[in-house]
Simulated scan of single mutants.
Amino acid sequence: MPDATQRLLLVHAHPDDETIGNGATMAKYVAEGRQVTCVTCTAGEMGEILVPDLAHLAADQEDGLGEHRRTEIEDAMAALGVTDHRWLGGFGRFRDSGMKWHEAGHAIAADETDDRAFANADLTVAADELVQIIREVRPQVMATYDQFGGYGHPDHIQAHRVATYAAHLAAVPSYRPELGEAWDIAKIYWNAMSESKMREGLRKLRDAGEQTFFEGMDPDGPMPHFVTADEHLSCAVDATAFVDRKMAAMKAYPTQIQLDGPFFALSNNVGDTAWGVEYYRLAKGALGPLGEDGLETDLFAGL
């Protein structure tokens, strides 16, 4: 049964990442009375701007996108019901590192980065900021990216490193006691996307005549790194009852997410399960009781 003393911590790189990956889970857990804390490591200052009228906010012009995305994430958190959102080290402490696309189809580091870029941050300095949050919140469960950051973005990879190192340091009683009493996170998960569900969704999109969304991805061909083979999945949180809140939160990011883009097309053609069931890989801790499909149904399973 849901318990008000159960606490989930999520660590993300930029505003909108949390909603795309975990929005339904967050909305469900908040509604059930569990504590949800979301930490965002940068303000996404280097993101692509999809609203032409806001093009002047770009980093090479007014450099105001971070402040704008600050309001977007506030609206998204309100849509999800999350009341504990934090910026790692405070707003503006770490800057979006930017990226470029590799010919293989994944993100890599940009040719040039700002000295304040999150990817350039000293690992221990950044981790200590999260150690303090971990020791204050005392979460039983943490969710973040895998070692490749899902699709290779330097900030996602750094978020994985910082979260992993901070979780270790936070559990050491003798490590910087001034940051709070030691706390060991019982279960750590990496965000995932089910390969079978992705293939099913792509087939339905193609059958519906949607050829431009997820262009280049063959339902029967190789999948990109952010898609996880089903045998590696550990947990499936069915939050389809809260998918409307996730969609509302996604709509709070007009500079980043197109309302007629692939996310909404997938939802329109596949239904609520496209974004309402969110998958995870267990990176630390023991599996709890499993559901009929052989996966946990709750991140707190077994605790």
Rank of each mutant, 00 (worst) to 15 (best):
P177V: 04
G291M: 11
V227N: 03
R281F: 06
A170F: 07
L65I: 04
D63Y: 05
Y253N: 05
D60N: 14
I185D: 01
M198K: 13
I108M: 09
M223D: 06
D53H: 00
T297L: 03
V30Y: 04
A166K: 06
G302D: 05
R34M: 15
K251R: 15
L303M: 13
T212Y: 12
A127I: 10
D3F: 00
F118W: 00
A43N: 14
G98W: 01
G150W: 01
C235S: 04
C41T: 04
E62A: 15
I108K: 09
G261Q: 12
Q158T: 14
R203T: 15
A107Y: 01
L290F: 10
D220N: 11
S194I: 09
I157Y: 02
V30M: 08
A121K: 04
T40V: 13
Q132M: 06
T124S: 12
A229D: 10
H85Y: 12
K204H: 14
D17I: 01
E200N: 15
T212E: 15
A241F: 06
V131Q: 04
R203N: 15
Q140S: 14
A59G: 05
M46L: 12
G180K: 01
N191W: 02
K100G: 01
D184T: 12
V36L: 05
F118T: 01
D155A: 11
T144M: 06
D238K: 02
M99K: 02
I188D: 00
D122L: 06
G23H: 03
D218N: 14
H56Q: 12
Y280D: 05
R176T: 08
R95A: 15
A59T: 10
E178I: 00
D111I: 15
P154L: 09
T240W: 07
L202I: 07
A208D: 10
